[in-house]
Design a protein around this nucleic acid. Structure first.
Lengths: 197, 197
DNA sequence: GCCTTTTTGACCACTTTAGTCAATTGTATA
DNA sequence: TATACAATTGACTAAAGTGGTCAAAAAGGC
């Protein structure tokens, strides 16, 4: 299915994908406009419907594409990652950065899709929320022995997470993120596990 | 201006305000639909345009209304609040809860308005972002002497904030919130300031 | 030159948009 | 009860936007 589209030159294919991810991610299925998509992608109206018979087909294609891409690049790589929480975060952040460089709105699309209420497509996006959670579960099996005695490591992970989420929403620079992580590590790790410089 | 509207019975006035705050907050100025607003408010189309000559006038009225309301209830009260961070948070949370009980979408509207790009109204909403920051600055003059030496109190406040926000999104029970706050206080406060039980 | 594939954009029927206005209902005073 | 005035309705409009079509033009390969 959609061989014509997948055989497209990478540059043009990504332009269309990104235009559609941005529009659906911004406005949801119902309000997204195919006119806006073709304009942002720099192609004629007819061409979009040459690749995808309907708006709904385009949306479902995007959804499957994101699932596959996130799986190949993130969830599937859980085994290869460092067991130290902070090292793991640095690695995952690098992967996410690469992903968002090529597909700037892939996470926004998945977030919007996970909240999709339009019944024409709702059935297809049931797993989106689960999937986004899975990208967080990447941190589940992290080495908890480094936390100070008496500290609840699970709750500490929550606090670290919410901090990272807050920093992301604020669009902080990586150097800034590092400062916050250093504070948290100093507070939460045992002294002996604390020599990271 | 708009005396007719402000002399309305409280119940009806709030219904219209809330319907409009929700619609603009959800969809932004351009995509917000006056049809949706009148339907949600339970009034006829004509009545909305009896109170506000145009959609733009309605939007600007809402914006000024929010500025005023937030100022009267939050920013203006900074002086009366406790200097201890945790006590202050309890107080502010109570005020915010009252506000969102009466105007559920007031913060969402301001957040959306602060990102507004439509040039018909952009000039009027320049200060929205500043104002939202101001509601956070409420914690700026908190007693920072209680934090451990060498700790950046401002960044600690951010971390505490994001944790509280995460707990709110998770709908945690108050006892659960207290556990997280105790962890953070133990980690961040000096031992001497740490006797809170 | 010729055939196939890719690409265009004017066009269609339909929905939604902000805003209008003659007509109806409610309310207060006499 | 009659009168005046304000509050409220909702069918209506012109314009804009919608997803989708299709004949024709352009590009590519041989």
């Amino acid at each position: 299915m959609y061989e014509k589209f997948s055989r497209l030159k990478e540059d043009k294919r990504d332009r269309i994908l990104n235009a559609a991810l941005a529009e659906f991610g911004d406005r949801g299925y119902k309000n997204a406009s195919t006119n806006n998509i073709v304009e942002a992608a720099g192609i004629a109206k007819g061409l979009l419907f040459h690749y995808f018979p309907t708006k709904k087909d385009l949306f479902i294609y995007l959804y499957d594409f994101c699932l596959m891409t996130l799986n190949d690049n993130l969830i599937g790589k859980a085994g290869e990652l460092d067991n130290d929480l902070f090292a793991r975060w640095i690695h995952i952040t690098a992967i996410k950065k690469e992903l968002t460089e090529r597909y700037p709105d892939i996470f926004r699309f998945m977030t919007t899709a996970s909240k999709e209420e339009n019944k024409a497509v709702k059935g297809y996006t049931q797993n989106a929320r689960l999937y986004l959670l899975a990208t967080n579960k990447l941190y589940a099996q992290v080495d908890k022995s480094k936390f100070r005695d008496g500290l609840d490591a699970g709750r500490c992970l929550d606090i670290i997470f919410w901090t990272l989420k807050g920093l992301e929403e604020r669009n902080s620079a990586p150097e800034d993120m590092k400062i916050y992580l250093d504070i948290l590590r100093d507070l939460m790790y045992k002294e002996s596990a604390d020599e990271h410089n």
